[in-house]
Write a protein that binds this DNA or RNA. Structure first.
Length: 417
DNA sequence: TCTGGGGTCCTAGGACCC
DNA sequence: TCTGGGGTCCTAGGACCC
């Protein structure tokens, strides 16, 4: 048996933990630059605010319905997530953290009343962190997902935990669930399925395997088996990341190369820092830039390039150099740029990698980066490259809550030649 | 005026090998 | 007239997730 534990309205719930007066009131959390709604309390859903709603279009709803609006505080949410996950890890020797607000637990060979076990998890997590969760328990991962949706949808009847442990319950659940809401069936496949009359998860489970293979590849076929109770999706150990990205929409359009260059440099450094925390080196760097797609009367341009490195590295200095090399090949003058990003790919371990015969990462950089990371993480000071943007405040975050559980760091700039 | 960010996996087709 | 067969590896793009 698998359990899937999903935090309810996670970001909104995090804000509520430290501000209980928001209980029973509509709460929304906005994306970077206070752009879109990315989390909603149940009350906010009820007043008709959709996921992804642009904040400026819904300003009047926020005011009229007295909605509490927050800028995204990812430092707070990340810390709360760690606390929830740590508590849940006590309930199984095997945990897969699937996202910031969800995890699977392997409950095989557990001789307990599973319904009571789920209810206890829920109770303890709420007591320890203040975060409400829904628990779904079933013989496969995708069915555990279905069970968690039932737990979330019917809190009064289920107590927030639901177990699918008989074929009757499985079929009843699948007949209840619209196929569009099945984990692994996205918009494209839902459209195809609706077109041939498949409405529910149950209908999907009855489909001919050949049709599924032809239209949804092996991914769809595995999902069908899993929903039919044949465990096909396994627990996956969360290992090292296979790609690391830092991408941002800018608070306005950038007209000069220098502005874009500063941001791309900062993104590259941010990626390099994340890369070093998992002790990897990268072999490829993708850089992309995009114009403002909402300004339909202006020239549109978007492009990307993958730079193959002559040697694997995690040096911020080298990664910035190669990223800017890439940027120069795709930058086009006369465009107002609204978004850019850097993605690192193709990793090696920093202890085992292929050296180049002719070029290698600067031998002193590894120690330099170690020193910089130490200063930045442990001392409260901030060392950065001179080419990075100098601002300490680069996003619009007008409604940011305090980092209640983590310290705010002083920022001191040391320019590095 | 204003519209998010960060991941994973699979596949088709091209380049290459003998 | 007539032009093989069987592989591997890589990559860009698409689908999905939260």
């Amino acid at each position: 048996m698998f359990a899937l534990i999903d935090c309810n309205n996670f970001y909104a719930s995090c804000e509520r933990v430290f501000n209980p007066s928001l209980n029973c009131k509509p709460v929304v959390v906005l994306s970077n630059n206070d752009g879109c709604v990315i989390a909603r309390s149940n009350e906010a859903k009820e007043v008709g605010i959709p996921m992804g709603a642009p904040a400026f279009e819904y300003q009047y709803v926020f005011e009229r319905k007295n909605v509490a609006v927050f800028s995204a505080n990812f430092e707070l949410y990340g810390d709360m997530s760690r606390r929830v996950m740590t508590m849940l890890s006590d309930y199984s020797p095997h945990q897969e953290i699937y996202s910031i607000d969800e995890c699977f637990l392997d409950l095989s060979n557990l001789l307990v009343d599973l319904q009571a076990y789920g209810l206890n998890m829920r109770k303890q997590v709420f007591k320890g962190t203040g975060i409400p969760v829904s628990v779904g328990i079933a013989p496969t991962k995708s069915l555990a997902k279905v069970a968690s949706l039932i737990a979330k949808k019917f809190p009064a009847r289920t107590g927030g935990s639901y177990v699918i442990d008989t074929d009757e319950k499985r079929i009843k659940a699948l007949k209840w669930l619209p196929v569009d809401d099945v984990w692994g069936i996205g918009r494209r496949n839902a459209k195809k399925l609706n077109a041939i009359g498949v409405k529910t998860a149950y209908d999907f489970c009855q489909l001919n395997k050949t049709w599924i293979l032809n239209h949804m590849t092996i991914v769809g076929a595995r999902l069908q088996d899993d929903l039919n109770g044949i465990p096909t999706l396994e627990m996956e150990p969360v290992e090292l990341k296979k790609s690391i990205a830092t991408t941002r929409t800018f608070e306005r359009d950038y007209a000069t190369y220098q502005e874009v260059e500063e941001r791309v440099s900062t993104f590259a450094v941010s990626c390099a820092e994340k890369l070093r925390t998992q002790h990897s080196l990268c072999n490829k760097i993708e850089v992309f830039i995009q114009s403002n797609r909402f300004k339909e009367n202006e020239e549109q341009y978007s492009n990307s390039v993958v730079v193959k490195l002559p040697f694997p590295t995690s040096s911020s200095i080298e990664i910035v150099e190669f990223a800017l090399e890439g940027l120069q090949t795709i930058y086009k003058k006369g465009i107002g740029y609204k978004r850019a990003g850097v993605v690192l790919m193709d990793f090696d371990k920093d202890t085992e990698y292929q050296q180049s015969l002719f070029f290698n990462s600067h031998p002193k950089h590894a120690r330099l980066m170690e020193a910089i990371d130490f200063i930045n993480n442990k001392t409260g000071a901030k060392v950065r490259l001179a080419i990075q943007d100098k601002r300490t405040h680069k996003m619009r975050q007008e409604k940011l809550s305090p980092c209640y559980t983590t310290k705010m760091k002083d920022i001191i700039t040391v320019h590095l030649k």
